[in-house]
C-alpha cells in the first residue's frame, strides 16, 4: 500500500523546513522544564496555539516540489493513484507529528494531575488534524505554500488575541482544556468531522486535477 512512499526523500526535499516544526516542541520542553511550574495554562496554550497549528507546516512543504517548483507538470503523469500523491504522504507526516503530540500530552498529564492523558492527547491530535487537513485542502486549491500557512496563522492569532470573539461560531481550540474536560470529546468529534470534510475536498480536487 505504501510501496511508492519515499519519506526519507520527502524529508530531504523539505530541507531545513523539516526541522522548523521541531521548534515549537523545543519551546514547549523548555517551558515545561525551566518555566514557572505553577502556571500550566501556558503549556496548554502552547499546545493549542502553537504546536497543533504547526502540524500544517510539513503538509504545506510536502507539496513544494509539486506546485512551487512545477513538479506536478510531469509527476501527475506518473502511475500513482490520487491517494498516493496526496493522502498517504500527508498521513505519514501527520503520524510523525502525532508522536510529538503524544510526548507533550504525556508530560502535561504528569504535570496536571486532574487532566487525563487520553483527553489531552485526543484533543490536541484532533486540533492538529484540522490544521493538517485544512493545509492539505488549501495547498491543493491554491498551489502556493504560503496560502495555507498564512490562513492558519491568521486564524490562530485572531483566536488567541481576541479570545475567540472575532470568529464566535466555532473554535477549533478549547481555550481552557484542563478545566472543561466534559467538552473535550464532543469537540474532538466535531474536529474529526471537519477534518474529514477538508481531507475529502482536498482529495477530490486533486483527483479532479489528475483525471479531469
Amino acid at each position: 500500500m505504501f510501496k511508492r512512499m519515499d519519506w526519507p526523500f520527502e524529508i530531504k526535499a523539505m530541507g531545513y523546513n523539516f526541522y522548523v516544526s521541531f521548534c515549537p516542541f523545543l519551546v514547549f520542553l523548555a517551558t515545561y522544564f525551566f518555566g514557572d511550574q505553577t502556571l500550566p495554562d501556558i503549556l496548554l496554550h502552547q499546545m493549542e496555539f502553537i504546536i497543533a497549528p504547526f502540524s500544517a507546516w510539513w503538509i504545506s512543504f510536502l507539496f513544494y516540489g509539486y506546485f512551487e517548483e512545477g513538479g506536478s507538470t510531469f509527476l501527475f503523469s506518473y502511475p500513482l493513484k490520487t491517494i498516493e500523491h496526496g493522502f498517504f504522504r500527508v498521513l505519514l507526516f501527520f503520524l510523525a507529528y502525532v508522536v510529538l503530540i503524544f510526548v507533550c500530552s504525556l508530560l502535561l498529564a504528569v504535570r496536571l494531575y486532574h487532566a487525563p492523558f487520553i483527553a489531552l492527547f485526543f484533543q490536541f491530535v484532533s486540533e492538529a488534524l484540522v490544521y493538517t487537513s485544512l493545509s492539505f485542502m488549501i495547498i491543493n486549491l491554491f498551489k502556493l505554500i504560503w496560502v495555507p500557512l498564512l490562513f492558519i496563522g491568521s486564524y490562530v492569532s485572531t483566536e488567541y488575541l481576541t479570545g475567540g470573539q472575532m470568529i464566535p461560531y466555532y473554535h477549533v481550540m478549547l481555550f481552557h482544556p484542563a478545566s472543561i474536560q466534559s467538552s473535550v470529546f464532543p469537540q474532538t468529534l466535531i474536529n474529526l468531522g471537519i477534518s474529514f470534510i477538508f481531507f475529502l475536498t482536498g482529495h477530490y480536487y486533486l483527483k479532479y486535477k489528475l483525471y479531469a
Binding site: 526535499a13 530541507g15 516540489g65 512545477g70 513538479g71 507538470t73 503523469s77 502511475p79
Partner: peptide, 17 residues
C-alpha cells in the same frame, strides 16, 4: 500512465538535491 514517460517544456524540481 504505466506506459508513458513525459518530459514537459519546463523541467526543474528538487533543486537542493
Amino acid at each position: 500512465r504505466k506506459l508513458l514517460g513525459y518530459l514537459p517544456q519546463h523541467f526543474s524540481i528538487y533543486k537542493s538535491l
